[in-house]
Simulated assay, not measured.
Amino acid sequence: MGIKELINFLNKLEESNIFYKLNKVRDEAIMVEITVPGQRWEVEFTNDGTVEIEKFISDGDFYDVKEIETLSNDFSD
């Protein structure tokens, strides 16, 4: 898939009123970050024409402010 397919994909998201952002985290890819209720998708269009999709799906749980400490303890450098 090339730039034409990427643009068609973005147009389809816009027509469907689906929120997205463009990002670049790897030298060889453009990332489309998509946010829908309960999910976040990362769709990467790579320079060799492949498309990689990773989905982050919520477990439906909500946490209180104490969870911020868990974030700091578990993921800080």
Rank of each mutant, 00 (worst) to 15 (best):
S58K: 06
E54R: 13
E28A: 07
T46F: 08
I68K: 07
A29P: 04
V65E: 14
Q39I: 11
M31A: 13
E14F: 04
K24H: 09
E52A: 07
G49W: 02
I7A: 08
K4L: 08
E54T: 15
I30W: 01
E14I: 06
E69C: 00
N73Y: 06
F19T: 11
G2Q: 03
I18M: 05
M31N: 12
V43F: 00
S76C: 08
M31Q: 14
V43D: 01
V36I: 15
E14M: 07
S72Q: 09
T46D: 04
E5T: 07
I18N: 05
R26K: 14
E42H: 08
N8A: 14
L22N: 06
D61P: 00
M1R: 07
D27R: 08
E52D: 09
Y20H: 12
N8Y: 04
I53A: 10
E15F: 04
N8D: 15
F75H: 11
M1T: 12
E5S: 11
E15N: 14
A29I: 02
I7W: 01
F9M: 06
S58G: 14
P37H: 01
L13F: 02
T46I: 00
K24M: 09
Q39S: 15
E42C: 06
I68A: 10
F19W: 04
F75Y: 15
K12L: 13
E5D: 15
F19A: 13
D61V: 12
K55Q: 12
G2N: 13
E28L: 05
E28T: 12
L10S: 03
V43L: 03
K12H: 10
S76K: 15
T46M: 05
D59F: 03
E42G: 04
R40M: 12
E5N: 10
L6M: 13
F45V: 04
L10R: 01
L71G: 08
F56G: 09
E28S: 13
L10N: 03
Y20M: 08
K66R: 15
T50L: 05
V65A: 11
I34L: 03
T46L: 07
Y20E: 08
F19N: 13
K24W: 00
F62T: 15
N73R: 15
D77G: 14
N23R: 12
K12I: 07
L10H: 02
V36Y: 04
